[in-house]
């Protein structure tokens, strides 16, 4: 009909997978494996439900529902809530902790930026969980400035994934800036984000065969494949 000057209504398509029942079957009333989102929201909140669904696996692959993991995500948010609420008592500031936290912040930011841009929500959330551990380990030995920056970055990274709790905590950390959803996505420092290298010893049948340099944080599967 020649109504447009473009050919297709959508230039990019992404093909998501399906959420299955706990029994790995398609959800249906007759199978009794239906998960009701309203009940979950009442119990855990929308942020946890959203993120848990994204955490279950790569989005394009789909995933079976797993009732046992959602508590873990709920605890993750509680952990971040507590970190933001705990008043800072700068004890003995430790340069090493400062350095580690800053590196973790930029490394996570780089990873989450890349993952969200490619619909890899599950690995983005895994990276945020690991950053939460870094925060727990180091934040009490960091200057207020470092702490605030790390926590604010955490909240900004969480904003697209968990829009409510990130907004609530943002108002605690930086109320003067308005809504977190009007903030710009933070930039990472490529140098700080680049992973530290470790020496990996390659053993075959108990004998050392090689030594290779690998970035820290490589998952077991990746090293095995490599």
């Amino acid at each position: 009909m020649k109504l447009f000057d473009f050919r297709e209504p959508a230039t990019r398509l992404f093909n998501q997978g399906m959420i299955l029942g706990e029994d790995h079957e398609k959800m249906s009333k007759s199978r009794g494996n239906v998960v009701n989102p309203d009940d979950l929201v009442k119990k855990y909140g929308a942020d946890t439900v959203r993120c848990y669904l994204m955490f279950l696996g790569p989005w394009d692959a789909g995933a079976p529902w797993n009732p046992h993991g959602i508590e873990g995500l709920s605890r993750f948010f509680k952990g971040i809530w507590n970190l933001c609420h705990q008043p800072q008592k700068p004890e003995n500031i430790d340069q090493e902790s400062e350095k580690k936290l800053r590196k973790a912040q930029h490394r996570t930011l780089k990873k989450v930026t890349e993952d969200l841009g490619r619909f890899r929500f599950n690995t983005a959330i895994a990276a945020l969980m690991s950053f939460r551990n870094d925060l727990k380990d180091h934040v009490h030995r960091c200057r207020e400035e470092t702490r605030t920056e790390a926590l604010k970055t955490m909240l900004l990274m969480l904003a697209p994934l968990a829009p409510h709790v990130s907004e609530e905590l943002w108002q605690l950390m930086a109320p003067e800036t308005g809504s977190i959803h009007q903030q710009a996505w933070p930039a990472f420092d490529e140098q700080l984000a680049s992973a530290e290298m470790v020496t990996l010893v390659v053993q075959i049948n108990g004998k050392v065969r090689d030594r290779i340099q690998c970035p820290v944080g490589l998952e077991q599967k990746q090293t095995e494949e490599g």
Partner: peptide, 22 residues
């Protein structure tokens, strides 16, 4: 609204929000 709607829309929303922040 069933969990399949959530599974479709929560990630799309996350992506939309991410692009807005960018």
């Amino acid at each position: 609204l069933h969990i399949g709607h959530w599974y479709a829309m929560a990630p799309s929303d996350t992506y939309a929000r991410f692009l807005k922040m960018q």
